[in-house]
Design a protein around this nucleic acid. Structure first.
Lengths: 342, 342
DNA sequence: GTTAGTATCGAAAACGGTTTCGTGTTAATA
DNA sequence: TATTAACACGAAACCGTTTTCGATACTAAC
């Protein structure tokens, strides 16, 4: 096992000082062309690369960004992460990722682990439990210590920081209106427990659209589906008791499951009933019929979040005055497929 | 913005030396109980946490592991990653992830970025392009510099290092035999270009099973589907010209697509035709009919890979003699669903 | 009262870089 | 010839830790 070569080795070998080597490798004009050539040639020969850790310690910048997300086996978060990784890499940053598993404790532990010099800033989306408890002292602490933080998708109003969100209310409004324009009268909303702020926003858009069409919101049409449960039977029971001619779902899975139940009951899609789901993942593309969806443009969200963070980090670096916090809104779009009349 | 507190600050404030503070915080018995209490109380009050970067520089261990995978928006890699992250976190390691995007260049660049002190070792799966070119000088270089490396799934025989693979040949053999036992005679193999070693292994298992049943391999039954192309029409053409009563697919998507084409042609599943696909993702669980799959146990693979890596890193730490390289084999299993007769 | 031993702490080197400042040499200028 | 400026390089501080090796003071033993 060859030892990694350092400035010291080069200096000793070439009988110059460490400072000379350092400067020569940065092409400083303090050093003569002769010695520069000599040193650079030697460094290239032995494939010298400066030690990241040492550089980080010196200039107090790691060129790492920490990403904390609730789940990685999840299409939306995966695409957002892809966007983060893409932009970060272009800017010479690496990405350290931690999964909170939708729990508060892991979120806290992970952030503490990373916030001791390992990273220059955080990008995160709140875990379900954190949203439930609405306890964000760990985030406040991070900000207090001067670590930049960008929240995306699952954000909180109680924190002053950069954010990237989807126009959830608006696009849910649009999606619902699309169903109304098709002539649907009894549009169900398949949603999660309400402590997810995105679900709430989507519900608001749904209700606003109904109102605009002079339709009263019928709470029987709102189907709250818990995670990790016997969802199928629940949906079946829902169809038993409720008359439905369209479903707007806050995610892909619920929509696909509802479609499955409807098909089993002999309903024709989209003749008898229409479906729209959030998230443009594999499921919607390969289902039968294919599912009309709200595309959340995760990559764009990720890039945006990374840009906000890196901009702030580097602004801090330059010693410029801090800019006020921004909230960027990514515009979702509806992708028409076979589950709706077009 | 509060500055992060360091040993130096504590030392100055309490009028002791830096070494005393350091020792006191580690509960060294060199320090009197009195001063220890005083220092520890002060540290706790100001929420002192040692700077990871400085510690890394000192003991030449970062407690970071680098993961380089071809794609993150891909169920299998995501689950493997999940396993890596899980085990690594348990052992106090963080995970830095880079995506090669199936390209050789990004793979090389990412690894060079990380291999200058940022990480203690690599876990990776080769990009498509790397497997095509069969150029692994960058990997050899990493090993040469003494950085431990664990390969998973997409491995190469040309490199001496720890590996974690699936029993691809064997499980493909089993899956094919399952179809044969159902009485299927014309079993198609839907696969990718052959430079993926896993696809090759699966093809071998497929052929071995046919042989065992005395059936000659018919190359017309092997459907090679390119990535990112008009796959649907290709599959349609295949069904036009070929008589098929079962399909074994090396991934989930191809299987679902084939099922879609078969359904459109009015074939009954699994009465007229059976399907088995590799990868137990969302698609197979929510398709109609649900797809019988080969579960690759990604989490287990990831945990295994992380364990191999961390074990080696820490063995090196202890200065123990290097152990010889292992190849761990994760046993896949078949999950029976509706697309096969059971 | 000297010696040895123990408890408690600090100085300093080290990890691998960057950067400021100083110094010696040479060549140009007064 | 004396002065100065440019050039080329090295010494040393610094980033925040850990750790070795003294150093001091006090106690116990002879």
């Amino acid at each position: 096992m060859k030892q990694k070569i350092t400035l010291k080795h080069i200096a000793r070998e070439l009988e110059v000082s460490i400072s000379t080597v350092s400067k020569a490798l940065k092409n400083s004009d303090e050093i003569s062309e002769d010695t520069k050539e000599k040193i650079q040639a030697f460094a290239k020969l032995y494939n010298y690369k400066p030690n990241n850790i040492a550089v980080s310690l010196k200039n107090k910048r790691t060129k790492n960004i920490g990403v904390v997300i609730p789940d990685i086996v999840h299409h939306f978060f995966t695409t957002v992460f892809r966007g983060i990784e893409k932009y970060a890499n272009e800017q010479g940053y690496n990405v350290i990722i931690c999964v909170s598993d939708e729990t508060f404790d892991k979120e806290v532990i992970n952030m503490e682990m990373l916030n001791n010099g390992s990273i220059d800033g955080f990008i995160m989306s709140l875990s379900a439990e954190t949203q439930q408890k609405n306890d964000i002292t760990h985030l406040k602490q991070v900000l207090d210590q001067g670590t930049p933080l960008v929240l995306f998708d699952r954000v909180t109003d109680d924190l002053d920081c950069d954010k990237v969100i989807l126009n959830d209310e608006e696009i849910a409004f649009e999606a619902t209106k699309k169903l109304l324009k098709e002539g649907r009268k009894r549009i169900a909303l398949a949603t999660t427990e309400s402590y997810f702020n995105v679900s709430e926003k989507r519900a608001e858009g749904y209700k606003r659209a109904l109102n605009e069409y002079g339709i009263e919101v019928d709470n029987d049409l709102v189907l709250v589906i818990p995670y990790d449960d016997i969802q199928e039977s629940m949906i079946d029971a829902f169809f038993d008791t409720t008359d439905v001619d369209a479903v707007l779902s806050v995610n892909e899975i619920f929509a696909i499951q509802c479609m499955g139940v409807a098909k089993k009951r002999g309903m024709k899609i989209p003749k008898d009933i229409s479906f729209i789901g959030f998230t443009d993942g594999l499921l919607s593309r390969y289902s039968n019929p294919t599912l009309t969806v709200v595309a959340q443009h995760g990559i764009q969200m990720g890039e945006m979040a990374a840009k906000l963070l890196i901009d702030r980090v580097e602004r801090e670096d330059e010693g410029e005055e801090e800019e006020s916090f921004k909230t960027e809104i990514v515009k979702a779009s509806i992708i028409n497929r076979e589950s709706t009349l077009n």
